[in-house]
Design a protein around this nucleic acid. Structure first.
Lengths: 122, 122
DNA sequence: CAGCATCCTCCAGGATACTG
DNA sequence: CAGTATCCTGGAGGATGCTG
């Protein structure tokens, strides 16, 4: 085994994979909302806001497939479906939240850099 | 006992933004390589592997614009251009690496969940 | 209510060719 | 060497309509 420096170079493909998985338009927003507790489909839809029905379905299926979310169907009329984070999903939420915290604290610096860059191009 | 205030909900748009920024196909791989020190264009190109010249240019421009990397041109013949992480870039690398570490430790569980899901659908 | 099915648009990203 | 400039394609994602 290679010695681990604190660089991500060695595992960067894996990092890239997980980031692409989680870096699509809706995934984080959905697991973010589900972090508050189980939710029904349309409840989640309006909580996220702006997401199409198709994309919510797609996103949830993906999360379910990867073991981040459970899907519970109540065979009532009308039907009721609850989505809830699994343990794995909640664990994922931690490093994601850390990144989110970083984002929250540094958007200012990023925006400043952008303004500087765009001004330089003029 | 889980920490009760993960509340990603409030800033989830910002999180989503930064994740989409960093969640494209090449960004993480590039800053991962640059984490080892400054690199020239083609050096970086072959280090990353599989990236087209166009996408490396695009990715680097984006990173430069956001203040994550610096671009230094040496007016020699042939030309030489060095790319290097800024402080901001190195700081970004930390939460990203944490997420990468999570990915490294949990790909097994995710793959297992996928296999289970796909088998159930069959 | 919670979806599937369909159609359509847009753009990330690859391939290729040319240049200072 | 380090790029620009074009062309092209797959797939993410939106809009709409139908169903158990």
């Amino acid at each position: 085994m290679k010695p681990r420096h604190l660089h991500l170079s060695e595992d960067c493909r894996a990092v890239s994979g997980i980031l692409q998985r989680v870096g699509d338009k809706w995934t984080v927003l959905v697991i973010g909302k589900l972090g508050d507790g189980p939710m029904r489909f349309n409840e989640l839809r309006s909580a996220v806001g702006g997401i199409s029905q198709k994309m919510l379905t797609t996103t949830l299926r993906g999360l379910e497939r990867d073991g981040f979310v459970t899907r519970t169907v109540f065979p009532t009329i009308p039907p009721r479906v609850d989505y809830e984070l699994t343990d794995l999903g909640r664990e994922l939420l931690e490093p994601v939240t850390a990144l989110g915290e970083w984002a929250r604290q540094n958007t200012g610096r990023v925006n400043a850099a952008r303004a500087r860059f765009d001004a330089a191009v003029e």
